[in-house]
Computed example of a mutant assay.
Amino acid sequence: MNEHVTPTPETTKPIGDLPADHPPVAAQKVGVLLVNLGTPDGTDPVSMRRYLKEFLTDSRVIEWPKAVWYPILFGIVLNKRPKRVGLAYEQIWNHDLNESYLRTYTRSQSDLLAGALRQHAQVKVDWAMRYGQPSIPTKIEALKSAGCERILIFPLYPQYSATTTATVNDKAFETLMKMRWQPALRTVPPYHDEPVYIEALASSIERHLSTLDWEPEVVLTSFHGIPQSYFKKGDPYHCHCLKTARLLRERLGYSKDKLVATFQSRFGPEEWLQPYTDKTVEKLAREGVKRIAVLNPGFVSDCLETLEEIDGEAREIFTEHGGEYFTHIPCLNDSAEGMSVIEAMVRRELQGWV
Rank of each mutant, 00 (worst) to 15 (best):
Thr6Asp: 08
Pro9Gln: 11
Glu10Leu: 14
Ala20Gly: 12
Ala20His: 15
Lys29Leu: 14
Val30Asn: 02
Val32Tyr: 00
Leu33Thr: 00
Leu34Val: 08
Asn36Gly: 02
Asn36Leu: 01
Pro40Trp: 12
Gly42Phe: 05
Met48Gln: 08
Phe55Glu: 09
Leu56Arg: 02
Trp69Tyr: 10
Tyr70Ala: 12
Phe74Tyr: 15
Ile76Lys: 05
Leu78Gln: 00
Leu78Pro: 02
Pro82Lys: 00
Tyr89Glu: 05
Leu97Lys: 14
Glu99Val: 12
Glu99Ile: 11
Tyr101Leu: 14
Thr104Val: 08
Thr106Asp: 06
Ser110Asn: 07
Asp111Cys: 05
Gly115His: 07
Gln122Leu: 09
Asp126Asn: 04
Trp127Met: 02
Gly132Ser: 11
Ile136Glu: 00
Ala142Gln: 13
Leu152Phe: 10
Pro155Glu: 00
Pro158Asp: 03
Gln159Met: 14
Tyr160Lys: 10
Glu174Asp: 15
Met177Leu: 13
Lys178Ile: 01
Lys178His: 12
Ala184Arg: 11
Arg186Asn: 08
Pro190Trp: 02
Glu199Thr: 06
Ser204Trp: 12
Glu206Phe: 04
Ser210Ile: 07
Leu212Trp: 07
Leu212Pro: 00
Leu212Ser: 13
Thr221Gly: 13
Ser222Glu: 03
Pro227Gln: 15
Gln228Phe: 14
Ser229Phe: 10
Ser229Tyr: 11
Gly234Asp: 08
Gly234Gln: 09
Thr244Asn: 06
Ala245Tyr: 00
Leu247Met: 06
Leu252Val: 09
Ser255Lys: 04
Lys256Tyr: 11
Lys256Ile: 08
Ala261Phe: 10
Glu271Val: 12
Pro275Phe: 00
Thr277Trp: 03
Thr280Ser: 14
Thr280Leu: 06
Glu282Leu: 15
Ala285Ile: 10
Gly288Leu: 14
Arg291Ile: 02
Val294Ile: 15
Asp302His: 03
Glu305Tyr: 01
Leu307Ala: 10
Glu309Asp: 13
Gly312Pro: 13
Arg315Val: 02
Gly323Met: 10
Glu324Trp: 03
Glu343Phe: 07
Val346Ser: 00
Arg347Glu: 01
Arg347Gly: 01
Glu349Val: 00
Glu349Lys: 01
Gln351Phe: 07
Trp353Phe: 04
Val354Gly: 02
